[in-house]
Design a protein around this nucleic acid. Sequence first.
DNA 1: TTCGCAATTCAACAGGTGTTGACAGACTTC
DNA 2: GAAGTCTGTCAACACCTGTTGAATTGCGAA
Lengths: 194, 194
Amino acid sequence: MTPAGRRAGNPDTRTEILEAARDEFGESGYRRATIRGIARRASVDPALIHHYFGTKDELFAASIALPFAPGDLMDGVFEGGRDGAGRRLARAFFTIWETEQARASLLGVLRTAISGDERATAAFREFLLEALRDHLAAHIDGDDARLRAVTVASHLVGMAITRYVVRLEPVASASIDDLVDLVAPRLQSYLDQA
Amino acid sequence: MTPAGRRAGNPDTRTEILEAARDEFGESGYRRATIRGIARRASVDPALIHHYFGTKDELFAASIALPFAPGDLMDGVFEGGRDGAGRRLARAFFTIWETEQARASLLGVLRTAISGDERATAAFREFLLEALRDHLAAHIDGDDARLRAVTVASHLVGMAITRYVVRLEPVASASIDDLVDLVAPRLQSYLDQA
DNA sequence: TTCGCAATTCAACAGGTGTTGACAGACTTC
DNA sequence: GAAGTCTGTCAACACCTGTTGAATTGCGAA
């Protein structure tokens, strides 16, 4: 189709590849996604992907970079103290998932981690640890603080799966406001119970 | 290694293959699991698998059969009315996941559904619908009954993922009693709120 | 203008995959 | 004990995968 050699103009093909990769990994996870599929989506030869990003591993790593720092986000959630933190947490969580780029990245990580790949699982575990569990536990009292923190994280992960992965109604097309109203009180109760 | 031809004795090789398949699909999901890997685990030639089960699809279908009927289970949960149903639901859920065979099957379904395979996702959706959402919603009042039912299911799915898939501590090695104590009140509150 | 470098494709590799058909050995039945 | 059926392996197929090296074309600087 496309003739060999450099194209006319100065198209940002590298970025197009990265976006195609993010979408493909988001839809299929690491294993099911193929270099050839990503190349097709970016209208590019597979070899070009290796030219820019090296191995499939490195491409995946580059494609799941998040447009925010989880730590900062958690700081915002607890800025006003524990009162209302459940609500702010729920809103922050769903808001992130609604932004297209973040959703694709998060889906890629989630799908890959759950697929059974040991390295991906470990990475996801670290992510949940640093981003959620430890920050949450720091604001919970009692000796089961970490247990309750992970339970909060579990609830959120579960919501993401039914809404964005399985797309089960009526959660899939509920408004964020409704979801926050519903979930926030239970999250808060996990945080508060002494 | 093993000589060609029928083996001595009457070993139930078919069952061994099925167990190997269940374990392999449970660890890796449909895509990552390979016929050759299952054959290796069952100490058998790959062709024998096709002889017994036909295609990989059919083997997967045979391997995820659950040793219980979800409908019956839900009947038990609501037998004594809505009072205490949250607790009975949580206990039933974790108890099932603790039985080895069921866990492998459930992991296989979960991993495959979340991997992005459209057919598997649809199947999982139907499963959640029939097994959880509709049964739960029938015992919840208010016009957001289905929304709250799916939220309950989401929480449970999330717990299964952190405990059995990601194995994030301290949820991974908490006792079932502790988990039930923690989660049941919130499930109950989803069921009760009018 | 020319020259080097970056962008891009082409063709091929080595390896893994599901699946198939032909063959071999042991149990079952008459 | 011979015939037939079930259990099992071997060898090969067609296909898809990630990856590589060489070749081709355009851009920017000297």
